[in-house]
């Protein structure tokens, strides 16, 4: 049972995982320790896997014959529906961890709730993603605490990153018409309840990390509506270069 809002809703989930996975892919070979190269690659693979399942599903719902690659490589930035937080640049390892943690905490709540979705296909994808996200959160929360409560330098770096990225969390927890319609249909959870659980979990980890929770910031430019920061265009130019240069070929 799908409505007109289903396609954009699935796309939001898909694009968020795709964009975040793409960002983590940039780290491979450049992480602070070899073990972290593997850890980040593992998360990137999980996110890419989620993106592929969700994009394929979205394409089916849309019914215009677009598969995962057509959606990933042939849409322009304005058609992408990832949350803006996902497209923010990696910066240093601390910034990457802050971004990852805020999103992991959100994805965990979301996927847990979506595991009970009235949309069976989505519920299946979410159930698999929950296990992956639990591990991602363990990793990112663990690192946020080490960096927040490590040295003066590490604390300063993640505190600054937290202040800069906090405004993008507004979008994760503020429902729009699509969110509300999906919630009404039992496909997706209500973001009101999710907000409370997210804030509690994030608050607990920030406290352990000796980090100050930034002041609430509303931010009106929501990637999930296709209103992105300048970063997405550059990322897509790099990501989409080959299929766009050689249209219609098989790789």
């Amino acid at each position: 049972m799908t409505s007109a809002a289903t396609f954009p809703y699935i796309l939001r989930l898909a694009d968020t995982s795709l964009v975040l996975g793409q960002r983590l892919g940039e780290w491979v070979g450049h992480a602070p320790a070899l073990e972290e190269d593997l850890a980040l690659a593992n998360i990137a693979l999980d996110l890419l896997g989620q993106a592929r399942l969700l994009l394929s599903y979205a394409g089916e719902i849309e019914g215009r014959g677009r598969d995962e690659d057509a959606l990933a490589f042939l849409r322009d930035a304005a058609e992408f529906c990832n949350v803006s937080l996902a497209e923010q640049p990696n910066g240093d390892f601390g910034r990457t961890i802050v971004r990852q943690f805020l999103l992991d905490a959100w994805q965990l709540e979301l996927y847990e709730a979506l595991s009970g979705s009235t949309d069976a296909r989505l519920a299946g994808i979410a159930a698999k993603a929950v296990k992956e996200t639990r591990y991602h959160l363990r990793f990112s929360a663990g690192w946020l605490v080490r960096l927040g409560d490590g040295t003066a330098e590490s604390h300063a770096r993640v505190a600054a990153a937290l202040e800069e990225l906090w405004r993008f969390t507004d979008e994760l927890l503020t429902p729009d018409a699509v969110d509300e319609e999906m919630a009404a249909a039992g496909v997706a959870p209500s973001l009101a309840g999710l907000r409370l659980r997210w804030e509690e979990r994030v608050g607990a980890v920030l406290a352990q990390a000796t980090l100050k929770r930034p002041a609430a910031a509303s931010y009106l430019w929501h990637g999930k509506r296709g209103v992105h920061t300048e970063h997405l265009g550059h990322m897509l130019a790099e990501m989409q270069h080959l299929p766009r240069t050689f249209p219609g070929v098989t790789w």
Binding site: G25, A41, L48, A72
Partner: peptide
């Protein structure tokens, strides 16, 4: 790793990340 962000399909991207991850693992 230079081509992870530019792999021309999602499947190729996933395989490449897994391969490079393996190489890191072999180093370990």
């Amino acid at each position: 790793g230079n081509w992870i962000t530019r792999a021309p399909s999602l499947r190729r991207k996933a395989v490449l990340i897994a391969k490079v991850q393996d190489e890191g693992g072999h180093g370990m």
